[in-house]
């Protein structure tokens, strides 16, 4: 309670207190958003499952083929049944969370720097630099994302790393636009001019003044994009262009389950459900964050 009072102090004594207090207020607003909280729960669950996968299920059962046990329906030993090679579907779904999370994190790590690297100078310098960079961005924006990712994945060859690169190459343009827009609104601010007068270099101003201000909206956008990234990755996996067997990637699991769909429905349905719930979680979280940031409770 004391902590709470300190955080909500209308007259914070330090910059850190003010900052933490701001975050805490945002959290209080976010907590009222039921759907957003559900989303947060799903995302935390995904992270937890991925982190503690070996503790939740036996790692061996995700990959070991037990042909005698193939295509078993749900039972105590295999709550989600087994697939066409007798592997435990629950174990594979749990380990699949690691792959999904890896893809999402890797894509974010590529996409955000590219987006910032193109959007920030465009907004900051303006003029022909802006025109050239944005024209370049528009070209990529004009592409249908999955199709371009397909073409890239086809050219680079199948595999999870190439899927990540392919998705990242198609996912960065909105970030460039966002970073540019955020920079434009801040470019003429007095604190930027003050920094300029003090002789700070452009690079320094961008890195220390503008980037931190862009990050919140970039993060919200990223959360909303996560679902799209997960779906594209799963789609590539489903088409056989993502993670390769025997890796328990959810999209690829749906694809193999397709062969036995009519008789053993669970083989395809369960991993698909995992994809759906995970991307729904990110969407709910992102939506909630956006509501809070735009001030509609």
């Amino acid at each position: 309670m004391q902590m709470r009072a300190w955080l909500l102090d209308p007259a914070p004594a330090s910059r850190r207190q003010a900052q933490l207090g701001g975050w805490f207020r945002a959290w209080l607003a976010f907590r009222r958003n039921t759907l957003g909280m559900i989303g947060l729960g799903i995302v935390l669950l995904l992270i937890g499952v991925a982190a503690f996968a070996p503790l939740i299920v036996d790692p061996a059962s995700a990959l070991t083929q037990v042909l005698a046990d193939r295509l078993q329906p749900s039972s105590w030993a295999h709550p989600f049944g087994t697939d066409e090679l007798g592997r435990d579907i629950l174990a594979r779904v749990v380990f699949g969370a690691r792959i999904t999370l890896t893809i999402v994190v890797l894509v974010s790590l590529i996409v955000v720097p590219i987006g910032l690297a193109i959007g920030l100078p465009a907004g900051y310098f303006g003029g022909w630099i802006d025109a050239a960079l944005m024209r370049f961005t528009d070209i990529f924006l004009a592409f249908p994302r999955l199709v371009l990712a397909l073409a890239f994945a086809a050219a680079l060859g199948p595999g999870i790393e190439n899927a990540v690169i392919a998705i990242a190459l198609t996912a960065w343009p909105p970030y460039a636009r966002l970073a540019r827009a955020e920079t434009l609104t801040r470019r003429r601010s007095e604190f930027i001019q003050a920094a300029e007068l003090q002789g700070a270099s452009h690079l320094r101003i961008i890195a220390t003044q503008i980037v931190p201000l862009c990050l919140p909206s970039v993060i919200i956008r990223l959360t909303l994009d996560m679902a799209g990234i997960i779906l594209t990755a799963a789609g590539l996996g489903f088409l056989g262009l993502g993670a390769q067997p025997p890796s328990p990637e959810w999209g690829a699991m749906v694809s193999t389950g397709r062969e036995v769909l009519l008789d053993q429905w669970w083989v395809a349905t369960i991993p698909g459900l995992a994809i759906f719930v995970t991307s729904l979680g990110f969407n709910l979280l992102g939506d909630g964050l956006r509501d809070v940031s735009s001030g509609r409770g």
Partner: peptide, 26 residues
């Protein structure tokens, strides 16, 4: 409507297709 939209945004279309085939066709 909002929730339905989010569901639509989160749906792996290939999986929905399979489930649809299973249910409405098979």
């Amino acid at each position: 409507v909002r929730f339905m939209s989010l569901v639509g945004y989160s749906m792996p279309v290939f999986w929905l297709g399979l489930v649809g085939l299973l249910l409405f066709y098979a």
